[in-house]
């Protein structure tokens, strides 16, 4: 991950100031200066990378220790290597409830992110490409939705879902997760500039319906933005802790974040849970890292487009 950061670092000035950095005939003085500032920037980046990676390192090291050694040995270096033993114990604990939680999280975040992306993509595309009365009003209302933190909505949502008798169900977490105001915003901006009107005209002339046009032509052009939206939403749902906390009571529906939190609050009473919380936390970030690494290429270009416009 550090290579990514540095890679970005060296690329950034080039794309921001194309005339200077990409000009091979730049003077020796400015080259020296840029080397100096580059080293400085690298140093700061390096320090911050370290700062962000040390907790993960600690988590990894702690996960590899037995319960006894956890508190008695150096936190940043290994004692006896028990990682796989610990993972095995965690998976076996209470008939593998942890795996169930992981599966739930993958379902909430994966499926939720996918549906959210499709809805946001269609919505943004419609707002960008169709002219209809109230378009700006709708867009502004959606934009307003970006400003309302999800946490503030959790309690009203709970009361609403209570009326519909849907609390403590899969839908209680899933339905609120498939809405992404920010996704609508991003896809609208992106669709406006990456999907040419002429192309839509062309497909209309060829006899394709609007929906078919969207799914066969436009969606491909919007791919970078859609991947960004998916990634954002995936991470947001995965980390959304407050909604499950309020909505769910049955252990078999918990996402992994909430399950680990519940364990963590019991540490005073049941200290045996401590290693499980640690290993669980380590394992629970793996899907995030995998998703991020797989999709970051798209993500960067999509984010860049959104932010520059």
């Amino acid at each position: 991950m550090s290579s990514t950061t540095l890679d970005q670092n060296t690329k950034q000035p080039r794309s921001l100031k194309p005339s200077k950095a990409s000009d091979p005939s730049a003077s020796a003085g400015s080259l020296k200066e840029s080397l100096l500032s580059r080293t400085g920037a690298m140093l700061i980046m390096g320090i911050f990378t370290l700062y962000f990676l040390i907790p993960i390192w600690w988590l990894f090291v702690a996960s590899s220790k037995s319960q006894g050694q956890l508190l008695t040995t150096n936190g940043l270096w290994f004692a006896d290597f028990n990682l796989f033993q610990n993972i095995g114990d965690l998976f076996a604990y209470r008939d593998g409830v942890f795996l169930r939680w992981m599966g739930n999280s993958v379902l909430y975040a994966g499926l939720g992110g996918l549906v959210a992306t499709i809805i946001a993509g269609m919505c943004g595309y419609a707002l960008a490409k169709y002219r209809f009365p109230g378009r700006e009003v709708i867009f502004n209302v959606v934009l307003g939705g970006v400003l309302v933190p999800a946490t503030a909505l959790a309690l009203p949502l709970f009361l609403l879902f209570s009326q519909a008798q849907l609390t403590n169900t899969f839908w209680a977490v899933f339905l609120p997760s498939i809405v992404s105001p920010f996704g609508v915003y991003l896809t609208r901006i992106f669709a406006a500039q990456s999907v040419p009107d002429e192309l839509i005209e062309a497909s209309r002339i060829d006899g394709a319906g609007e929906i078919r046009t969207f799914f066969t032509v436009s969606i491909r052009l919007m791919a970078p933005a859609l991947v960004t939206v998916f990634l954002f939403q995936f991470v947001a749902i995965w980390n959304n802790f407050f909604l499950p906390l309020i909505m769910l009571r049955s252990e078999e529906l918990f996402p992994v974040t909430f399950g680990l939190y519940a364990w963590n609050t019991q540490l005073n009473q049941v200290p045996e849970l401590r290693p499980y919380v640690l290993i669980g936390a380590l394992l629970s970030i793996i899907p995030l890292i995998v998703t991020f690494l797989l999709l970051q290429r798209f993500w960067r270009s999509g984010l860049g487009t959104g932010s520059l416009k």
Binding site: L159, T167, L245, R249, S250, A262, N264, T265
Partner: peptide, 20 residues
């Protein structure tokens, strides 16, 4: 049904659920 210990969220949930 389960959850975090009382002061870490379950009591608040109880109050919400009583309200609902």
């Amino acid at each position: 049904q389960t959850g975090p210990n009382g002061n870490s969220g379950t009591y608040q949930n109880f109050f919400n659920q009583l309200k609902a």
